[in-house]
Design a protein around this nucleic acid. Structure first.
Lengths: 244, 244
DNA sequence: GCTTTTATTTGACCTAGTCCAAAGGGATGG
DNA sequence: CCATCCCTTTGGACTAGGTCAAATAAAAGC
């Protein structure tokens, strides 16, 4: 068996931190020592230290909040998009504390992409609802909902920090019946970065969903920007669901 | 309207490179000037230059091959996992050149995770097939297939660089009938990093699929490690498929 | 006890390099 | 024409700092 190649300094630091985490000494949500303190502890520079943290971050083991610190990651939320997107219920089922904070409501002009996604004519107006979702006290998800206003008159007067699914059903008699998802890695910009407490350009996981009613008409389009250590998507084909 | 905050140097470099790419001056697959050349061009350090490239990378606009250079990204492959995973067909449908290279075949002891996924007893033996997939001449995906050997006797004697879907059907009379997918961001390690031409710890998108036959029995488990600029997953609920 | 102010801590961003090992290209020899 | 060797180029990894602005904590005042 060939001798394993020597670990880089960053790799050794990563391994040492992982040992502390896996050994239960650093708990989910617990803050790591500062970059400067860790650099001193490992007798290295902050550049090398950040390299090690960056790998742990890519692995989903730690996360950062811009200018606040590095923290040990929580377990990923299991998100089965084909089985509904009721955030509170998903969290409850997985013993997680969920919170939703409404950031804003406004009408916007639909971008060409949104016009195509929602099948509305150019220059259409849409409701834009911005919400920040947390799990166990830390921000995990930022969502921008784009709603067709003719389907949801007077929505700005409702309590939009609660479930939109339930609001649609109770107030408008509208039920989600189908959805299409696009899933891809992306980078946090502007308000997204801000809402997720990330630096501009930080990697995230984007889930875009276009929802329809039973008649097949579009209802809304949601852009879900997930911290990528926060979620694990599970998708099953129909027959698989029957087999389980 | 508030004055936009001044861009960082890295952000300005990112914007300038993006302008060259969006203006058609740098083409998909085309190599960027070296880090040193770009650092000189923008009168900055390689550290700052790499910061800018890192953001473009997270956005899926450029990609790197370790010690070979930075390149302009190709369009993402649209991958609808619920509608089959025939790589060649997907690529053909999107005017992309696909290639598959067999890296190795061996029998391995199933890990606990694989025992659970494939519902086999502890200490089970599995076939492990490793393949590297390219689009338009560049590596986009590395896959590790784990097969139940009793379902696929003598598979090591087959041409494993071609479609496994077709091989299962023709040689073994077995058809995929259902699948469950787990999708999450991860970090490239060891052979994964090597096969994808990435440095250890680079971010990737992991798609794990457990496939079953018509009777619901497990067939194999695939780990798909995607360069995260290479793919866009599309998933639709059954009713949505009917509406389209 | 709450609000405001001040000080400290935090990660972000940057400079200016060095050295290393892998990859690629060119030259040489058979 | 192919293989081998050598040289150059490439990104990876690292050092040793610096400054900035946002966040937090502590102190002071009411």
């Amino acid at each position: 068996m060939t001798e394993p190649k020597p670990l880089s300094q960053a790799a050794r630091i990563r391994a040492a931190l992982l040992q502390q985490i896996d050994g239960g000494l650093l708990r989910p949500g617990g803050r790591l020592p500062s970059e400067r303190a860790l650099a001193e502890l490992f007798a290295t520079t902050r550049i090398t230290l950040k390299e090690a943290l960056g790998v742990l971050e890519a692995e989903g083991r730690v996360y950062r909040e811009e200018r606040r610190g590095w923290f040990v990651a929580f377990p990923r939320l299991e998100y089965a998009p084909l089985h509904g997107n009721h955030f509170q219920r998903m969290a409850d089922a997985q013993q997680r504390a969920a919170e939703t904070r409404l950031l804003g409501v406004e009408t916007v002009l639909a971008s060409p992409e949104l016009c195509r996604a929602l099948e509305v004519p150019p220059l259409s107006s849409l409701w834009k609802i911005r919400r920040q979702r947390s799990l166990d006290g830390r921000v995990a998800l930022y969502v921008e909902h784009f709603l067709r206003p003719e389907r949801f008159p007077d929505i700005q007067g409702q309590d939009l920090s609660r479930s939109l699914t339930e609001l649609y059903r109770r107030r408008y008699g509208i039920e989600y019946a189908a959805a299409v998802f696009d899933i891809l890695p992306a980078a946090a910009q502007g308000r997204v970065a801000q809402a997720l407490m990330l630096a501009e350009g930080s990697p995230i996981l984007l889930v875009r969903r276009v929802n329809r009613d039973a008649a097949g008409a579009t209802l809304d389009c949601d852009y879900e920007y997930w911290r990528h250590d926060a979620v694990r998507l599970r998708v099953d084909s129909p027959a698989a669901a029957a087999a389980n």
